[in-house]
Nucleic acid binder design. Structure first.
Ligand code: SF4
Ligand code: SF4
Lengths: 156, 156
DNA sequence: ATCAATATGGATCTATGATATCCATAATAA
DNA sequence: TTATTATGGATATCATAGATCCATATTGAT
């Protein structure tokens, strides 16, 4: 269970949009050269980011990409969900098994079946993970970088 | 990004070992029938669980599987790591890129390069996830099931 | 000692998804 | 009009998950 390379690329692409923010758009050529990923592949990723409203894109001369909102408003969770999708971390695949009947029998209330206990644990894990990822933004990474930089400067 | 079906199977297999604990070993046939998974496939999973010391196995007549330690001592994290492996959630794949040099330049201390900032965020996420999964054991699922059962009984 | 039952591990097959490339098309600014 | 750039479909390649089969080893029962 790992995040895909695409997530890696997406994060770095967004960071580059922040760092080289000279008002203009950044073309796929520059992004591709900076990240060391092919233009074709990276453009798919950028396109996804655009569809989800993370970046804006304009075609044509001097076109390219720019952030659609400020770096404080782009969380790690946003980026990850665009690339990895929004499926649950755990989705039961054997609810027709004999096991399931036994487990659910324990809790087979009158009406609405409450959430399965295993799924409850797993969904809890997912919520914790999401909450953490939501508290960390692209901006927070930049801030941390500057902080480290200052720290180094002070030591000299 | 999702847990594999094998993780699902492993958890249910362990639950079955707990629930039908009549002192004897449980054979792969019974497990297979209960979970609705082929014997061949499930036996691979059980074998992994054995290699990591989660269950014991004895071949021969009346052989089968049993828990190698109590259900309180088997955490979700244990099971998940056996099946999914122990790779990090995030492993950078472009540390040779131009981008990397720019990001690390900011923090390029004298000696030991501190952890990359992106990896720091991701590893933090991983730690949170692991901590949660470590606090939930097979036994805690059983307890929750009994609690629900009692609650239903009281309502009647 | 023999036999039946059971787990183990290697080999292999298939399905699925991640990674990656190419190209035709549309949109935009100069 | 033209050069430039993003877009999306089609397709190819590769790795991994999911699954099956079989030869072998181990054990208890006879
Ligand atoms: S008990 Fe929960 S996880 Fe297990 S089969 Fe039923 S729904 Fe799925
Ligand atoms: S900055 Fe971190 S995540 Fe990015 S390329 Fe360097 S090591 Fe990898």
């Amino acid at each position: 269970m790992q995040f895909s390379k695409s997530t890696d690329y997406a994060l770095h692409a967004l960071l580059h949009l922040c760092l080289s923010d000279h008002g203009n758009n950044i073309g796929i050529k520059e992004l591709s050269a900076t990240l060391g990923v092919s233009e074709s592949y990276l453009s798919k990723i950028m396109s996804k980011l655009r569809q989800d409203g993370i970046v804006r894109a304009v075609p044509g001369m001097n076109g390219g990409y720019e952030l659609a909102r400020s770096a404080e408003q782009i969380t790690f969770l946003d980026v990850i969900q665009v690339i990895e999708g929004r499926q649950h971390l755990f989705e039961c695949s054997n609810s027709k098994s004999q096991q399931h009947r036994l487990l659910v029998e324990t809790e087979t209330a009158e009406q609405e079946c409450p959430q399965c206990i295993i799924e409850a644990v797993m969904d809890g894990a997912e919520q914790h993970l999401h909450q953490y990822l939501q508290e960390h933004t692209i901006q927070s990474v930049l801030d941390e970088a500057f902080k480290r930089c200052d720290h180094e400067a002070n030591k000299k």
